[in-house]
Amino acid sequence: MAVKVMIPTPLRPFAGRQASVSVEAQTVGEGLDALTGQFADLRRHLYADGGRLRSFVNVYLNEEDVRNLQKDETPLRDGDTISIVPSIAGGRSR
């Protein structure tokens, strides 16, 4: 399936300065793999050590958080849009 991955402004320098990248994939997980395969420097900002998506990084398929769908296994259809959206979190040392 040909889908579009929307790149948030802070990560565009690591994705060829593009606002969106087209990838071929069957699932959301494959789509993100294709994206980071093309732009390896994105990985450290999306994934923590161990390969899990960072806790503050959220992935949407069209308008729906993939955590409410089938997560990485969520199937894609031609023309779908994957968006990477951060939660903003922080705070002082305990």
Partner: peptide, 9 residues
Amino acid sequence: FDREHAWPW
């Protein structure tokens, strides 16, 4: 904690 939850830019 701030650093772990931040992005560049």
